[in-house]
Design a binder for these strands. Structure first.
Lengths: 185, 185
DNA sequence: GTCTATATAATGATAGAC
DNA sequence: GTCTATCATTATATAGAC
């Protein structure tokens, strides 16, 4: 009985990287096997439901990342500017300065209205809602806070798309720099 | 010798829809066959190089759409505001008000540094450059025009991602409405 | 918990008739 | 230019040894 080579969290972290860089269809079992270092049979041992279960578990894992990097920092006590700056620092790190894409985008192609699609929708809405509450704290009324938060989300996602498409991370860096004035009143 | 069922342009238009909604890996030959109404053998008759050649030809087809909907309207004579409004009206139509995604995004996962990747990069840069020139006409200096154009591109791409992710087209509509003040001085 | 080996299905691609 | 039938390859998934 060989000892486990990777913790479950390490496996999920590697799966997250594969799915966000290749998408659902592009992440074949052989590629996943290569990137995680686990044989196919081992992968099915951990995820009997195959790729669909892997995606579901990765998205649960993303729940934790979202909570730690986005929700908690924005929900803590403190000045809106300071809280937002913490989130910005965190996502700059998570997206490697604009080098890596967003798994909520990469997986949205596969996800029509199945379980993973619903989960993706919930997660992006939770992120927007957290930014919305900070916008309210800064003095925006309900409608303006919601719109500013959606626009902030679009700025982040769009900057990631463009940064990768034209191979220029500065687009993402400037988007992060503009976030405070975009979201806060 | 059966008559052609579709013109080449109609085939390319349908291929564009499949690739932008499913991405490269998600667009299987059987799905492509179903969506175009052509048998696999017919598809290989038109595109002997298979899916890679289809993508290459679709991107050439996108050249024409970009020229017609974006480049030409922005390059014509006229006031910057009027020209930009024409582009906005055109892309609102092309993306069906925010319902459909951008093929430059959908295909960017497959495209590392191969031919299609280079083409995608060129096309997004051409779009940005056209917006950049209009920003200059409105009074921006070179550096500000470039940054505003990149940010406008990110707004469009981000709004499409978020609109689809949270199933809310108004995000895209508001992004279009904000484009003039975002791009022009 | 991991492996090798294998079964089964789907995919990209081709041959040849019409 | 389109079709049916088929091939070769790759994909997902499983069985059973250790």
């Amino acid at each position: 009985m060989p000892a486990p080579l990777l913790t479950r969290d390490e496996i999920l972290a590697r799966l997250l990287e594969v799915f966000r860089s290749r998408g659902y269809e592009g992440a074949s079992m052989s590629l996943i096997s290569k990137e995680t270092g686990l044989g196919k049979a081992s992968l099915y041992h951990h995820f009997p439901g195959g790729k669909d279960e892997m995606v579901a578990e990765v998205l649960k894992h993303v729940d934790g990342i979202l909570e730690q990097f986005v929700i908690a920092p924005l929900t803590d006590a403190g000045a809106p500017e300071a809280k937002l700056n913490t989130m910005i620092k965190n996502i700059d790190q998570f997206y490697c300065g604009g080098e890596k894409g967003c798994v909520l985008d990469s997986l949205s192609i596969k996800a029509g209205s199945d379980a993973s699609g619903i989960k993706l929708k919930e997660q992006m809405r939770a992120w927007i809602k957290a930014m919305e509450s900070v916008a309210k704290e800064s003095g925006c009324d309900a409608r303006e806070a919601k719109e500013r938060a959606e626009e902030a989300m679009a700025s982040i996602q769009g900057a990631l798309v463009v940064a990768r498409a034209i191979d220029n991370k500065s687009v993402f860096q400037r988007a992060l720099k503009r976030l405070p004035e975009q979201l806060l009143k």
